[in-house]
Design a protein around this nucleic acid. Structure first.
Lengths: 220, 220
DNA sequence: TAAATGGTTTAGGTTAGACTAAAAATAGTT
DNA sequence: AACTATTTTTAGTCTAACCTAAACCATTTA
């Protein structure tokens, strides 16, 4: 089963969107996600359904089939492995990598990916803390709690961010918040939902409710 | 100036072919090189001429313009840097890499290539011994002599191969001939042009005239 | 329940890159 | 100088992926 790179783009978009809400993914949502028009999406959905990668009921959105799901996970695996490469080896800053990884992920060479994986030391999470599926599409999940829901005093590790935008990531950098950092919630401010954190047992940091909503913590 | 990946493919082919013979490159030669039909090549030549990447006189073949030459060298630079990555870092065998590098070279991210170059330690030659152009298109050349022309007893280093086919490379591997190996010509057999070599001051090896014709040596 | 609204699909058109078949130009041979 | 063989170009199709505009469907609102 050969995929065009465009088909891959659609599968990834559908995967991402259905990971968010549980419902069938709508045409417009896909169009917005990949920056194209709804009409083009309808076109492509027909082709993907033809190949049995999605199940598609006209006017009622799409869901991935088993086959489509596997394929999407494989693309995601490639994407996230390249992201690790870019950050760990080439020393890219994490705000710059999604664009490049989006192109690298299109290369479908199983041997290349297997060797890359080995070379990187079989990483389980990408630089944003998102899990990297293995060859079989299995994902290793860790228990994760939104930062807002962490009880006071409980320690944890920053596990992932929900928002990968450059602006947000730059902000986190400036605050010294990074994936893997130790942290604890020192105080919750009632009236605006902001939090005071202790990072690495060293630095105290204030974050707003909006920021906290985009950070996931792995309790320790 | 944005290039489609197909245009890049043509420029590289034209570059390669004009590096061989000095004449203008013919339509058929390009078609053979990139595995397409002459009619398709004619089409594309028109477009490349439009962009002033080649100078194109109908029925008389093409040559690269200054601009086209620069562009081709940049693609070649990407290709060869990725080849180094595949062999040095991912431990690919050299027969497997041209196919993968041909896809990686299509990614045009100056920053990516700059960081890759740095990460690889600014290599000057790819795994086949071919020189890697720098950012400005400058190529570092070493004095090189076809193996057949090496005088008896003179020592040298295997510098490059002219034939990158998997079959040839596999053969060299089996004979223990690799880029960088020390060698000297022990004897030249008159009637068939074959040579007896000493490799690494340890092993004696016989190679045919055909094989010798595809090996370049850097005299020491 | 009928109309308005908004999301979705269809219809038809565009572009890039390939193809085949046919026409045209070049080069070689008498 | 004309004829032939070969190479190259042109002309006309095809497909994938996109687009716009128009039609269509489902749902919400009056």
């Amino acid at each position: 089963m050969l995929l065009t790179s465009s088909e891959g783009k659609y599968l990834k978009a559908i995967y991402t969107l259905s990971a968010q809400g549980k419902e069938a993914v709508t045409t417009n949502a896909i169009a917005a996600q990949i920056g194209t028009k709804a009409a083009s999406v309808s076109d492509m959905l027909g082709k993907l359904a033809e190949k049995e990668l999605i199940s598609y009921k006209k006017y009622y959105g799409v869901t991935l089939t088993e086959k489509g799901h596997k394929t999407a996970l494989n693309i995601l695996r490639r994407h996230r492995l390249w992201e690790v490469f870019l950050v760990d080896k080439l020393r890219f800053h994490w705000e710059d990598i999604p664009e490049i990884a989006a192109e690298l992920e299109l290369l479908d060479h199983p041997m290349l990916i297997r060797k890359l994986d080995e070379y990187l030391g079989y990483p389980k999470f990408d630089p944003y803390g998102d899990p990297i599926p293995d060859e079989f599409g299995d994902i290793q999940t860790k228990a994760r709690v939104p930062l807002q829901d962490m009880p006071l005093e409980m320690t944890g590790k920053i596990a992932a961010v929900k928002d990968n935008s450059a602006a947000f990531l730059r902000y986190l950098d400036k605050m010294g918040i990074y994936i893997g950092a130790r942290m604890a919630v020192l105080e919750k401010v009632e009236f605006d939902g902001s939090l005071e954190l202790m990072i690495d047992n060293q630095r105290k940091v204030f974050v707003s409710r909006e920021v906290a909503a985009n950070i996931l913590v792995q309790p320790l």
